[in-house]
Amino acid sequence: MSSHDILEVKHLKKYFGVGKHDVLKAVDDVSFQIKEGETLGLVGESGCGKTTCGRTVVGMYRATEGEVYYKGQNVHKLRGKEKKAFNKDVQIIFQDPYASLDPRMTVAEIIGEGIEIHGLAKTKKEKEEKIAHLLEIVGLNKEHANRFIHEFSGGQRQRIGIARALAVEPKFIMCDEPISALDVSIQAQIANMLIQFQNEMKLTYLFIAHDLAMVKHISDRIAVMYLGSIVELAESENLYQNPLHPYTEALMSAIPIADPKIEDSRQRIMLEGDVPSPINTPPGCKFQGRCRKVMDKCKCEAPKLIEVEQGHFVACHLYHK
């Protein structure tokens, strides 16, 4: 772990038991680092384990195996005061702004809860000022403080969710598809806000999403997940210009681009079939069933994530020497 890394994930595994004998390997041996002040995008299709990975990283789930280090401390071993400090530093913005805010609490209570728990305001007045300020920076006003969640639209709710996360002055935010439930014009508002806050408050993001154009726009580096494993990790520009893994290639070619000329001229790589079930996956590479460059080796041995260029990691036998 270099001194710039704020978070390091080492061989993280998270399995869920399904029925009597089956195991669902939601996260299967994932390793990555996040530098301070950077945004790491985590993309993949639904069911690939990206949300589970994010949740295990911030300590919402206990890891089956492997460790997560936040500023050198093992996240899953923290207790007492240290755990509380970690919870203050690390916040989450959830996907569904309808389900992640308590309908029986006012906006002021939702935002103020964290401030109270971590003792960030000495007086009641200071707390109120803080809440008013937070509402203002997320584009709401202080009259909204005494209202309940049902009075707000989806975009406004997401703003409240962001204000709640920012209330405890965090360093690291796990954004779990924060914009996918919103309308196009509102998505841009929220994305802009996230970019602005990162610059102003030196935040670090783990940005989970399936909208690849938006992820590319927001992230410095991107990790692509498939069935619980990272198949490729690179700087976002590099990943788009030069995708190495056959899955990333297909994924990139499937993103619709809002430009008719590009759409007309480009060649689509069509993936056949669906993502297979993550329960009891066969040995070897997980992508073998849908891969157009499949080799014999892929069926028996799982490829490891190796660095093929500076900062460009890929897990595919094509690139093993």
Partner: peptide
């Protein structure tokens, strides 16, 4: 409001 691939990051 749709990010374009050729736009600068962030």
């Amino acid at each position: 409001s749709v990010p374009k691939l050729e736009w600068k990051n962030k």
